[in-house]
Amino acid sequence: MAIVLLVRHGRSSANTSGTLAGRLPGVHLDDTGREQVARTGERLADVPVVEVVTSPLERCGETTDAIARHHDLTATVDEAVTECGYGDWQGRPLTELADEALWRTVQSQPSAATFPGGESLMAMQARAVTAIRQHDARIEAAHGPSAVWVAVSHGDVIKSVLADAAGMHLDLFQRLHVDPASVSIVRYAPQRPTVVAVNTHAGDLGWLRGPEPSGDAPVGGGAGPA
């Protein structure tokens, strides 16, 4: 059972301007974002990370650099974990988009939302979940069942992966929240995925160096990591 740390990129210039960046080039971390990812990198420095997979967009690459340098790793770039294809919504102010009829669909029934000139949220979830599960199986086969790896991606993408792991319908994924530079944790196992943590900003992750837990869910909740 490998374990994946889902890291959202740090705060970007588009986040602070209230713009839906999508896949536009040239969107970088702002000063706060660079501080955020530096803290995340330090938090993961003692975790035995064996591989980092990243979205190709600049803000994810900058986040990845802050993590990978602690582990002497070269990241794998994967288009399948890139931002949702927001199509004609890309580059527009969020305040303007909130007046669109589609905005209400994205909020209440995201499984029915397809962005004009872009992709659907269902398609985004399908390609991201497939990629994460494939990387996880490959990394476990190469590094063993206790392998820890990092996937650096985007808010809606990570939320969709977490929803799948939790057995939630995509229509419920807006109940999840994923902040810039946060770490969420999923462990995949033959029985089921386990959502270990969501949207964490601090806290010791040294327990990830411990032995592989049983694949069974402990009745009563168990004793937790040593």
Rank of each mutant, 00 (worst) to 15 (best):
G87L: 13
A38W: 01
A197C: 01
G222Q: 10
E140D: 11
P56R: 05
I132L: 15
G91C: 10
G10N: 08
G22K: 05
V196S: 04
A2M: 05
Y86E: 04
Q125L: 05
Q109A: 15
G224V: 01
L176E: 11
A66P: 00
T200D: 04
A189N: 12
R34P: 04
P213W: 06
W207K: 00
L97K: 06
Y188I: 03
I67F: 00
L97V: 00
A137H: 04
D30E: 11
V4E: 01
R11Q: 15
H143W: 06
Q125S: 14
G220T: 11
A181K: 02
E96S: 12
S12G: 00
V106S: 02
W103D: 07
L121C: 09
E62H: 10
D216V: 15
D72Y: 12
V7K: 00
A112Q: 15
E212P: 06
R138H: 12
L162G: 03
P145C: 10
D88Q: 15
A131H: 09
L170A: 06
D171R: 03
G91Q: 13
G210L: 03
A142W: 05
A66F: 10
L29K: 09
S182D: 08
A165Y: 06
H28D: 11
G167R: 06
A163M: 01
Q125G: 09
S214I: 04
M124L: 15
H28E: 12
T32M: 13
H201N: 09
C60D: 10
A189T: 14
I67S: 02
Q125W: 05
I158V: 11
L208K: 00
D156E: 11
V4C: 03
R39F: 10
T16A: 15
S182Q: 07
Q125H: 03
T54N: 11
I139A: 05
A112E: 15
A181Q: 06
D156C: 10
